[in-house]
């Protein structure tokens, strides 16, 4: 637990990371809400209320997207900070197992990310319940499932980002590659029909498949993954492979 707290301390004391992540997860939804509410108040006929069950899925997607970017940055920093600052050698020189040093990063990151995700989720819950107008509101099951999914999606992102960053050792490169993959390459690949069922290996597709709440585009509009079991397996494989590679590099690199 002391190692995990130490990881959390290293991350939470980075003011830029903390405020930047909060902006992505809470700030942007708040700004969008304010704009939508103003539009609704000015022109109720043209713009419906920002909340309600119909918009809940989009709000979830939004917070998951902002959270994913924050997660990639947090994971990229957590995976490289010890080496880039030069403190890794001092940690190794304590005699503590390198595997333990690596493993402690995962809960340490979660301790930073999940409270912010929870805060963001509470905000969209307030929007969807309090500013629904005459629309129906999400039920308790939707809320619980939605919260679980957004934690899963961002938790997954932060773990693979840390594993990947630990593997390649460069914060900028790992963050750049993962954001590029997520925002550009993965959506494009998902549209390439020639790839057929191989597209199910894309984790963005698996996360979309597991989203419990329909978006405005319809249920699972953005995914090519047909089965929830396959989606879960794909996510597990990504996590296991990237954690194994990151852990291997941490154990074998010169300190």
């Amino acid at each position: 637990m002391r190692l995990i707290n130490a990881e959390f301390l290293k991350l939470r004391k980075r003011r830029g990371l903390l405020w930047g992540s909060l902006f992505l997860i809470v700030g942007i939804p708040l700004i969008i809400f304010i704009i939508l509410e103003i539009l609704h108040l000015v022109n109720p006929a043209g713009h419906g209320p920002p909340g309600g069950f119909g918009a809940f899925g989009d709000w979830l997607e939004g917070i998951a997207s902002g959270g994913a970017i924050a997660a990639v940055i947090i994971g990229g920093i957590a995976g490289t900070a010890d080496v880039s600052t030069g403190v890794f050698r001092d940690l190794v020189a304590t005699g503590r197992s390198r595997r333990q040093l690596f493993a402690a990063r995962v809960p340490g990151m979660m301790m930073l990310l999940f409270p912010m995700i929870t805060l963001g989720f509470l905000l969209i819950l307030l929007i969807n319940l309090g500013f629904a107008g005459s629309n129906s509101t999400p039920g308790a099951v939707d809320i619980v499932q939605g919260y679980g999914w957004v934690l899963l999606a961002t938790g997954f992102e932060v773990v693979i980002a840390m594993g990947f960053a630990s593997l390649i050792g460069s914060r900028a490169a790992s963050i750049g590659v993962l954001l590029g993959w997520q925002l550009l390459a993965s959506p494009i690949l998902q549209q390439v029909r020639a790839l057929g069922s191989a597209r199910q290996a894309l984790y963005t597709s698996s996360l979309g498949r597991l989203n419990p709440v329909p978006t405005l585009g319809g249920p699972n509009a953005t995914t090519v993954t047909r089965s929830a079991a396959i989606a879960v397996m794909v996510l597990i494989v990504w996590v296991v492979v990237l954690l194994a590679l990151g852990g291997w590099r941490t154990v074998t690199r010169d300190a």
Binding site: L3, A6, K10, K13, T85, G86, D90, L91, T94, R96
Partner: peptide, 19 residues
Amino acid sequence: RFYPHLTGRENLKIIAAAR
């Protein structure tokens, strides 16, 4: 070498946690 964004005491806490 240390984490520059942490205080001296916090840097010691990090290493103490590994011991």
